[in-house]
């Protein structure tokens, strides 16, 4: 059994109805990374949705900017126990990107520059629940936080909000991505504390 360390408090941890179980609130924005930070130029950047049977939809940076933009203010919850309230993002709703995508598949694999992957049910990307964001706090999204563009799926743990996102592939069955292969939950609902296998 662990013995308490006299006088050690660690990071300040608060109880708050807006905090999912096992989380603490932080004002900082910790940088989490499982590998080297990819450096992707906007001129080279593309985003693809692969709907299967060769049906691929692709956007360049300019094409993304030409789509309707939304401002999103939301709480985010990282599985490493920190939460950050009221983060402000700007980007394109996934509803907009999926508008012309036809598929009977219910599952998706999100892919990133650098090779990262994470699986998300298609239903969790639609109906105003997910965005492809490229600004944070009014500034272009820094590479450390996933720039040029990252996914934002704030109702799931933040590892699902893939940084440096490059595309989404539709799948007929639910397969695990990177963290889902390495001990973390397939779905990742912070309010049910769905952290691990």
């Amino acid at each position: 059994m662990a013995i308490p360390t006299s006088g050690f408090a660690g990071r300040r941890r608060t109880r708050d109805v807006n905090l999912p179980p096992g989380q603490y609130a932080t004002d900082s924005f910790p940088v989490m990374s499982a590998g080297p930070t990819p450096r992707v130029l906007r001129a080279d950047w593309t985003f693809q949705i692969a709907a299967g049977q060769g049906r691929t939809h692709q956007w360049t940076w300019e094409q993304l900017q030409a789509l309707p933009q939304e401002d999103v203010t939301t709480d985010i919850h990282c599985v490493t126990h920190w939460s950050k309230f009221g983060t402000a993002w700007r980007g394109v709703s996934l509803d907009t990107l999926f508008e012309d995508v036809e598929s009977g598949s219910d599952h998706t694999m999100v892919h990133s520059y650098g090779g990262y992957t994470t699986n998300i049910p298609l239903g969790d990307l639609l109906d105003g629940k997910a965005w492809l964001v490229h600004e944070f706090d009014g500034e272009p999204l820094a590479a450390a936080h996933g720039g040029p563009a990252r996914l934002l799926v704030p109702h799931l743990y933040l590892w699902k909000s893939a940084k440096w996102v490059s595309g989404i592939r539709l799948m007929d069955q639910d397969l695990p991505g990177f963290w889902e292969t390495n001990g973390y939950a397939m779905y990742g609902d912070p309010w049910r504390e769905d952290r691990y296998w």
Partner: peptide, 15 residues
């Protein structure tokens, strides 16, 4: 890479 949900060890040659 330890500032992550888990400890990720990568190849020093090909990452």
């Amino acid at each position: 890479y330890a500032r992550a949900p888990g400890m990720v060890l990568r190849c020093p040659t090909c990452t």
